[in-house]
Design a protein around this nucleic acid. Structure first.
Length: 710
DNA sequence: CATAGCCGCCTTTTT
DNA sequence: GGCGGCTATG
């Protein structure tokens, strides 16, 4: 019998919570209590006699996993259920069951910058140049292949055109480098798990028996590999419950496939579908705007957003001269809210790209507002943090040449490029790893005795660390920091030293919380951790973050800045590709629907991008929201009203703002009227000036609210 | 082999 | 406007 704590759930929520066996799809709009439903469902399953051990819940971030764990415990579900991201689950599976597939459990996990290093090497090995084969593009392409579970050999067989054949060659080399270094990138974790489950029916059966109930949150943002993993795990019992909202899918660029959620009922024909359409979060006005915006997406399923809260405040819109004024106005408004008694943590500022945080940060400092910037991976990107991690990775996984090369002469110990090349050559000729070659350096004839001695010191240091690497992590880190010479080399750099201390205290916490702490496990876990996961919601600080980070969160007061063409939608998105544009619109939708009671939207008429002052154009999404920002363009302040759409008029006069499908936005410098063959001279924001024939250029006119630039 | 200084590159979003 | 990588110099 369900107890009284379920009383506050709505009928639909209850339906999802108490659904027992078989596939369940929960289509849940923003603010509909979806995460709550999952947590209650975990509690309800346990209450009905299911062992926590048999439940696996997948969340989108580590942070969400941590919160869900705590909430489940507070509901009386005594812990024991597996709650983690897909990536963490995969690490567990690969460590435990990977041996048969030839996986060494001490594998390193490579992040973006490690990957890019390996990719550059791979391109070089293929004797191709990085101008035609840019590492970033190659990595994107390979990531897409891995998400679709296509390995290098399979792809090579299919590759026909020149580009595909080159890509296949690079893919093979890149993967070779990772394998040689006993390393996996993020996509490998998923692909190798999916393949393992597919090829090893025994592992598959064991996991199916272990996880008799699988719950996947944010299902709209799963990729194909994740879908396969989920599908295989539940193949024996079909007890899968997924929740998600197609309108909040914002990770297509990373391989997320919205079709997973759209096709759920086809994949599991006997699925129960529950819709959660009531919104308990936002005021009716905010929802009205969100609904208006998202209705411009054509490739979607209609969904209602039913407000529970009253209309509330109007949405505040504002146009500013530049990003300095915008930031200053946001800071002042935030300050006012705080002075009126709002807690700083009930306020958040969202932007499209991380680079926009700097100017906001300065304004917040100036106005003495407590804030925290929630950033992707900044902490783990710091030099000193990477250096420390590289030492630890080498201790656990000596094959990790990426890490080894990073530390071998850092701090400087007289082992330079020439020496490294000689050792590399020796390693290749002897078919041994770089680390093994280093150990046998005394056999390398071409090296001087002095150099050999330096290497011996380095090797014996690492070997000593290895001996002491069992058990707790933090003490070893202290030793590594001191004895590697890193501490000495960072002397005077207080920030850097503090970052390392922060790492060590995090490790100490891990040591305490983990039954059997191990360095290998620790390194793998934190590789999957990002700064977003350490966002402290109990802190009395206003959060600044990207719109992507804002997913899954909610705030009383929300500010969205830089709502301009080129930023939102971002210039990198192909506005002719409806799917790309629709994803940007969803991103804005996600941002808007984070707000509970007040929402402030702004843009700047000029913005400095990469050190260059650019004239900007308000986002087309603002028109769609029905906000008449022209009204506010002369007053640099937020004002609260909503009127009809602004008009777009006038011919190609000098000063007219226009958009070109490949050059982007620009300003008309000159118009030569030659009837049908009229020519227009446009200076584009990219810096180039083009003379175009109107009839071919396909220019669209844009609203101009800016003052002249002279 | 180390260091400083310069050039040229890129720059969306993140597990 | 920031960083990595390269080069020239000590």
């Amino acid at each position: 019998m369900p107890n009284s704590r379920y009383d506050k759930l709505t009928a639909s929520q209850k339906e999802a919570v108490f659904h027992r066996e078989g596939p369940l799809l929960v289509i849940a709009g923003p603010g509909s209590g979806k995460t709550r439903v999952i947590t209650y469902r975990i509690a309800a399953l346990i209450e009905s006699g299911v062992s926590p051990h048999n439940i696996c819940a997948i969340t989108f971030t580590n942070k969400a996993a941590e919160e869900m764990r705590q909430r489940a415990i507070s509901l009386g579900a005594s812990g024991g259920a597996h709650i983690s991201t897909f990536h963490s689950l995969c690490v567990r599976i690969l460590r435990r069951y990977g041996a048969d597939a030839g996986i060494n459990p001490n594998f390193s996990i490579y992040d973006d910058s490690d990957q890019s290093g390996c990719m550059k090497q791979a391109i070089k090995d293929c004797e191709l140049d990085t101008t035609n084969f840019s590492p970033a593009r190659m990595l994107d392409a390979i990531s897409a292949l891995k998400n679709r579970l296509i390995d290098a050999e399979t792809f090579e067989k299919e590759a026909e055109d020149f580009f595909s054949r080159m890509l296949a060659k690079i893919y093979i080399h890149y993967q070779g480098i990772l394998t040689e270094r006993n390393a996996m990138d993020f996509d490998d974790l998923l692909m190798k798990t999916a393949t393992l489950l597919q090829n090893n029916s025994d592992v598959c059966r064991q996991l199916g028996e272990r996880f008799r109930f699988l719950l996947v949150d944010e299902y709209q943002d799963t990729n194909h590999a994740q879908y396969r993993i989920a599908r295989t795990i539940v193949s024996g019992h079909n007890n899968i419950c997924v929740t998600g909202d197609p309108d909040q899918s914002i990770y297509r660029w990373r391989g997320a496939d919205i079709r997973n959620i759209l096709a759920f009922e086809k994949d599991w024909p006997d699925a129960t579908v529950v819709r959660l359409e009531e919104n308990f979060r936002s005021s009716a006005n905010i929802l009205k705007a969100a609904d208006k915006l998202i209705s411009f997406n054509r490739n979607r399923k209609e969904k209602k957003l039913i407000p529970v809260k009253p209309a509330g405040k109007d949405i505040a819109a504002a146009g500013f001269e530049d990003e300095l004024e915008e930031s200053e106005a946001v800071a002042r408004e935030v300050k006012e809210l705080i002075d009126e008694g709002t807690s700083p943590r009930d306020i958040a500022v969202f932007y499209r790209v991380n680079a926009m945080s700097r100017v906001l940060e300065e304004a917040f400092i100036k106005n003495k507002i407590p804030y925290q910037i929630v950033r992707g991976v900044e902490f783990y990107g710091r030099k000193e943090v990477r250096d420390m991690l590289a030492y630890l990775k080498v201790v656990v996984n000596p094959d990790d040449k990426t890490a080894l090369l990073r530390i071998i002469n850092n701090p400087a110990r007289g082992i330079g490029k020439t020496t490294i090349d000689k050792i590399s050559e020796y390693a290749d000729s002897q078919k041994i790893s770089f680390y093994e070659a280093l150990k046998k350096a005394s056999h390398i004839v071409s090296l001087s005795e002095a150099t050999k001695a330096k290497q011996a010191v380095f090797i014996s240091m690492i070997e000593q660390f290895k001996k002491d690497a069992g058990g707790k992590v933090a003490p070893l880190m202290e030793r590594v920091f001191a004895e590697s010479g890193l501490a000495e080399s960072l002397k005077g750099e207080q920030n850097a030293i503090e970052n390392v201390s922060e790492m060590i205290s995090a490790a100490a916490q891990y040591d305490q919380q983990t039954e059997e702490p191990s360095l290998s496990d620790y390194l793998q876990q934190i590789s999957l951790f990002s700064d977003v996961d350490s966002y402290d919601t109990n802190n009395e600080r206003t959060a600044l973050m990207t719109l992507h980070c804002a997913k899954g969160l909610e705030f009383e007061n929300v500010f969205i800045v830089g709502v301009e063409e080129g930023l939102l939608p971002h210039e990198k998105t192909d506005t002719n590709d409806a799917d790309d544009l629709e994803e940007e619109r969803r991103l804005f939708f996600v941002g808007i629907t984070r707000a509970k009671s007040s929402l402030h939207i702004s843009y700047a008429r000029y913005r400095t991008i990469r050190g260059q002052l650019m004239r900007t154009v308000p986002s087309q999404f603002l028109y769609e929201l029905g906000i008449d920002f022209a009204e506010h363009s002369r007053q640099n302040n937020y004002s609260y009203d909503e009127t009809d759409d602004a008009e777009i008029t006038a011919p190609f006069a000098a000063g007219q703002l226009v958009r070109h499908k490949s050059f982007g936005t620009g300003v008309v410098k000159e118009f030569v009227d030659m009837g049908e063959n009229s020519v227009v001279v446009v200076r584009f924001n990219t810096g180039q000036t083009k003379t175009l024939m109107v009839k071919y250029a396909g220019l669209s006119k844009m609203q101009d609210n800016a003052k002249g630039m002279h």
